[in-house]
Lab assay of single mutants.
Amino acid sequence: HMTFVALYDYVASGETDLSFKKGERLQIVNNTEGDWWLAHSLTTGRTGYISSNYVAPSD
């Protein structure tokens, strides 16, 4: 899985979204569905959809 880092804080707007904080590391589970990616937070252990605009590759 690809690992990304959050560029900004994000508060989930629905049950399927994932809230995260700036600097949080996220593993991308599925990024084939446009701008919203299914991600797993390595910080909180939660999984949900994130906006690809809010993250950048961590490598």
Rank of each mutant, 00 (worst) to 15 (best):
H1R: 06
H1M: 12
H1D: 11
H1G: 13
H1F: 13
H1K: 10
H1A: 12
H1S: 12
M2Q: 13
M2T: 11
M2A: 10
M2W: 10
M2P: 12
T3R: 03
T3W: 13
T3F: 14
F4N: 00
F4W: 14
F4G: 01
F4D: 00
F4M: 09
V5S: 03
V5R: 02
V5M: 06
V5Y: 08
V5H: 04
V5N: 02
A6G: 04
A6T: 11
A6V: 11
A6D: 00
A6H: 00
A6M: 03
L7S: 02
L7G: 02
L7P: 02
L7V: 05
L7K: 06
Y8I: 13
Y8D: 07
Y8V: 10
Y8T: 08
Y8L: 09
Y8S: 08
D9T: 06
D9L: 04
D9K: 00
D9H: 04
D9M: 08
D9V: 03
Y10H: 09
Y10S: 05
Y10F: 08
Y10T: 03
Y10K: 04
Y10W: 06
Y10Q: 02
Y10I: 06
V11R: 07
V11L: 08
V11H: 11
A12K: 05
A12G: 11
A12W: 02
S13L: 12
S13K: 14
S13E: 12
G14F: 12
G14M: 11
G14C: 15
E15H: 10
E15G: 08
E15A: 12
E15D: 13
E15W: 07
T16P: 05
T16S: 13
T16M: 13
T16I: 08
T16Y: 15
T16H: 14
T16E: 12
D17Q: 15
D17F: 15
D17G: 12
D17M: 15
D17I: 08
L18S: 01
L18E: 01
L18Y: 02
L18G: 01
S19E: 06
S19A: 06
S19L: 06
F20L: 06
F20P: 00
F20G: 00
K21G: 06
K21Q: 11
K21H: 09
K21I: 08
K21C: 14
K21L: 09
K22G: 03
K22C: 07
K22Q: 09
K22M: 07
K22F: 04
G23W: 05
G23P: 03
G23V: 02
G23Q: 01
E24G: 00
E24V: 01
E24N: 01
E24S: 00
E24F: 06
R25H: 14
R25N: 08
R25I: 15
R25K: 13
R25F: 15
R25D: 05
R25S: 08
L26R: 00
L26Q: 01
L26M: 07
L26H: 05
L26P: 00
L26D: 02
L26W: 01
Q27E: 13
Q27G: 03
Q27A: 09
I28L: 08
I28V: 11
I28Y: 02
I28F: 03
V29C: 13
V29S: 06
V29W: 12
N30C: 12
N30E: 13
N30A: 10
N30V: 10
N30I: 10
N31E: 07
N31F: 15
N31Q: 14
N31I: 13
N31A: 14
N31D: 10
T32W: 08
T32A: 10
T32G: 10
T32S: 12
T32D: 10
T32V: 10
E33T: 13
E33A: 11
E33R: 12
E33M: 13
E33K: 11
G34L: 07
G34M: 07
G34E: 08
G34A: 11
G34I: 06
D35F: 10
D35Y: 08
D35P: 08
D35M: 10
D35I: 10
D35G: 10
W36P: 13
W36Q: 10
W36E: 05
W36D: 04
W36H: 11
W36T: 11
W36I: 14
W37T: 02
W37P: 01
W37E: 00
W37M: 06
W37H: 02
W37Q: 03
L38E: 04
L38F: 10
L38V: 06
L38T: 02
L38N: 01
L38I: 06
L38R: 02
A39Q: 00
A39T: 04
A39D: 01
A39V: 14
H40T: 15
H40P: 00
H40F: 13
S41D: 03
S41E: 01
S41L: 02
S41C: 05
L42Y: 06
L42H: 05
L42C: 12
L42N: 05
T43L: 10
T43D: 15
T44L: 01
T44S: 10
T44A: 03
T44R: 00
T44E: 01
G45A: 02
G45H: 07
G45L: 05
G45Y: 03
G45E: 03
R46L: 13
R46H: 09
R46F: 08
R46C: 06
T47I: 09
T47Y: 11
T47S: 08
G48M: 04
Y49N: 03
Y49F: 10
Y49I: 05
Y49H: 05
Y49M: 09
I50E: 00
I50W: 01
I50V: 13
I50A: 01
I50P: 00
I50Y: 01
I50T: 01
S51H: 15
S51D: 14
S51A: 09
S52N: 06
S52I: 10
S52D: 03
S52Q: 09
S52T: 07
N53F: 14
N53A: 15
N53T: 12
N53I: 14
Y54R: 05
Y54F: 12
Y54L: 13
Y54T: 06
V55Q: 02
V55K: 02
V55L: 09
V55R: 02
V55S: 02
A56G: 11
A56Y: 09
A56F: 09
A56D: 06
A56Q: 12
P57M: 10
P57A: 10
P57N: 07
P57V: 11
P57G: 06
S58E: 15
S58R: 06
S58P: 08
S58K: 07
D59G: 12
D59C: 14
D59V: 12
D59E: 12
